[in-house]
Simulated assay, not measured.
Amino acid sequence: MKKCNSNSSIISELDFKIKNVEKYISHSKYKEDMINKVEPYLKKKLENGYIIGEKGLKLYYEKFICENAKANIVICHGFGECTEKYYELIYYFINEGYSVFIIEHRGNARSQRLGIDDYQISVDKFSYYIEDFKKFIDEVVIPNGNDKKLLLFAHSMGGAIGTMFLERYQEYFSGAVLSAPMHEINTGKVPKFVATSIARIMKLCGRGNQYLPGQETYNGEKRVSARSTSCKERYEYQFNKVKNTKSYQTGGSSAGWYLEGAKVTKEMVKKKNASKVKIPILLFQAEYDTHVMPRGHYKFAGYAKNCRVIYIKGSKHEPYFEIDKIAFAFIERVLSFYSEIIN
């Protein structure tokens, strides 16, 4: 199996023993347990608020503080997501003794929107995500972190934001999990150079704020075969949450967002940038991911000083939201990694 560098390796599949399966929420009773167990538990611990991000944007966040916490986990979510998408994961983190902090990025969920309608994801500069994230950590996480270590959990687009943050600000985190990080965008059947050319032409014609071809506004339609997870129960639960909560509803991206994303993904995997990341990194790559390309993962891992890539056999884009045998093994590996860092 290919080696990325002396500290990095590619593992053929995620094979990790689940020590106590009873602590997990099974898809067999998923909706029932989320409503009767997880949601009430988190509601008691939830504190929320807003910060003012770059260019004066109002950004929503949530925090869950554990008494005598082991450390602090900061979640950096993916494209079009909201805090509730991570409630199952947050539940596990809290039960393991971690305080958890999560912010909804600009243009997503309850944070201020930026698109041409109420649903489009757009951004003027990708770097605003990073500076928003830093402000959140400086103003909310650190003052409530009781001087304990900071650990990052970053997924997909959040993985790109988290990676750029780690490259710019090396002094904050002690370790990071990158879940299917957006180190290279998967443009599907359309070649990357074609997608980029179309987006550039749109921007030159003053239409950079329009939906990129193939992208569309939120329409409330259910996908028969979800692109991001194989777990019907988790997908259905989240689908209904979004359908019934207008602020959670998001559509596709603008041409401008795509150009910003494509530009930063090229930069973050370059040696001069990735080599600045010296903390332990656990990077998960999903076998059936149709959102991001694995090539970017290998480039980043090859230059980062201490990055291990784990290939998750059978998983789609969201391993933390997959069928039980994948999700539970994934979470066990994440918890083991965090434990190694703080002990």
Rank of each mutant, 00 (worst) to 15 (best):
E62C: 10
V334F: 00
I51D: 07
E47L: 10
K45I: 15
Y237W: 14
F284Y: 14
Y41G: 01
N240R: 13
F337N: 09
L212Q: 13
C76I: 14
F330A: 06
G145Q: 10
I331F: 14
K23W: 02
P191F: 13
S179E: 11
Y211D: 12
I52P: 00
F173T: 09
Y258G: 07
I18S: 02
E139Q: 13
H155V: 11
E67M: 13
L89Y: 12
K29V: 09
Q120W: 07
R106W: 01
E340A: 03
V21F: 05
K125E: 15
E39W: 03
Y91K: 10
S336E: 15
N146R: 12
E340T: 13
L57K: 14
I142G: 01
M202D: 04
Q249K: 12
K31I: 08
T217F: 00
V140I: 15
R223C: 01
D324S: 05
S111L: 12
N209F: 06
N95Y: 00
L42N: 00
T187G: 05
A274I: 05
W257P: 09
D118K: 13
K192N: 00
A176I: 13
K17P: 09
E131V: 11
F133G: 06
G256T: 13
F126R: 07
D124T: 11
D118T: 10
V242Q: 06
E67L: 13
E67K: 15
H297P: 02
Y258T: 11
